[in-house]
Amino acid sequence: MIEEAKPVPHSADATSEPAWARRLLIGAALGFLLIFLALPLLAVFSEAFRRGAAAFAEALAEPDARAAMRLTLMVAAISVPLNCVFGVAAAWAITKFDFRGKGLLVTLIDLPFSVSPVVAGLIYILIFGANGWFGPFLRDHGIQIVFAVPGIVLATVFVTFPFVARELIPLMAEQGRDDEEAARSLGASGFSTFFRVTLPNIRWGLLYGVLLCNARAMGEFGAVSVVSGHIRGETNTLPLHVEILYNEYNFVAAFATASLLAGLALVTLVLKSVLEWRYDLRGQGH
């Protein structure tokens, strides 16, 4: 076991900078955070409440805003569980089995991170749009994907795919196969091995991935914007609704809606810190 480093007297510490340099660096970092992160957040809330709480509540009670909220929640409620299952399956396959094309799968999982969300949206237009590959077939059968809810869900699933898998792959790789093999040697079926051994081993990492996945699913703008068609009350998610209101110079309503998303971000951050704290505690356990 490595002993924890003992504090060394200042003069002997090769990495210690003079006091003024440290203050300058810390000051610069804090100033940067304040200007680029804290101030905009503050601005969102102050703009949202500029005309008072009543105007704020009114903006959110408006039918189109309600529809946007409902749609956003619904899209997240579909795409997060889907990616949860996909992510666990992909991480499981990559870390517990050896097969041909594993490297390709790992690369593919990262694709949504490396491609612009707009391109992701355009892919679906190309495939399912009126002039797309499946366009005629879909039209003949009366199925609408693009400019409708299914398209929004597809685009969101695509963009948020890596979050769960990325979180689980290193975790499951580190844990190895021993626990699963032990369970199997004790007679456990694949099903009970997964639910009684694997899942508990990855639960915090999984929750963490789900949390980030959810934040992105609710906040995604680019890909959704391309496939949504911006039909008010029907295919507008919260981020799209904010844009529309803003373009109409309806600032209070725009910021009120934006403050919901900002609030979601804050809650996500808090939960993320709590999870990281739990993660660490477990990390020290073995």
């Binding site: 021993d178 032990a182 369970a183 040697s185 081993n201 477990r282």
Partner: peptide, 11 residues
């Protein structure tokens, strides 16, 4: 089967 690193279920 007894594993080298025991493979006990931590939870």
């Amino acid at each position: 089967f007894v594993f080298q690193h025991y493979a006990l279920f931590k939870h």
